[in-house]
């Protein structure tokens, strides 16, 4: 069985962490990552929401920032390897035609570990 664990927190708080605090959190997480290494699959850390763009599907409208509505529920996500935001948006638009309604939030990924390896060398954000 595959599950996803989606991480939520307040960016204003996490961005207030000092480098040491960030490193301490990462070290604590890393312990858990190691312990469950056989169970972890891809792990990724997203860039801050300032790098997010949202495509509102029904209006085919691109707006800045993360998807902030609470009416809809998170139903899935893709990871795409593209040259730039334009290309990511092009793919999102085609998906939107195939499956209208709701929105896609397009957010770059900061760290990506495809095999779930522990993030020893993760740079502090």
């Amino acid at each position: 069985m595959l599950y996803t664990l989606l991480c939520y927190n307040d960016e204003m708080v996490t961005s207030a962490w000092t480098k040491e605090e960030d490193a301490a959190v990462m070290a604590r997480l890393d312990e858990v990552h190691r312990k469950w290494a056989d169970n972890f699959r891809p792990m990724l850390r997203l860039m801050p929401t300032s790098a997010a763009t949202t495509l509102r599907k029904s209006e085919n409208l691109v707006v800045d920032g993360p998807y902030a509505e609470t009416k809809e529920q998170l139903l899935g996500f893709y990871v795409v390897d593209v040259d730039n935001l334009d290309q990511a948006l092009a793919i999102a638009r085609e998906l939107a035609v195939a499956n209208p309604g709701g929105a896609y939030e397009i957010r770059p990924v900061m760290l990506y570990y495809p095999d779930g390896s522990a993030i020893d060398d993760a740079p502090a954000a």
């Binding site: 790098a51 800045d64 935001l85 770059p108 900061m110 760290l111």
Partner: peptide, 18 residues
């Protein structure tokens, strides 16, 4: 050079250009 800061900046510039 800090790669994750650069990557974030490039992503934000992409957004701004739109």
């Amino acid at each position: 050079w800090n790669r994750s800061m650069i990557a974030e900046a490039l992503a934000i510039i992409d957004k701004a250009m739109l």
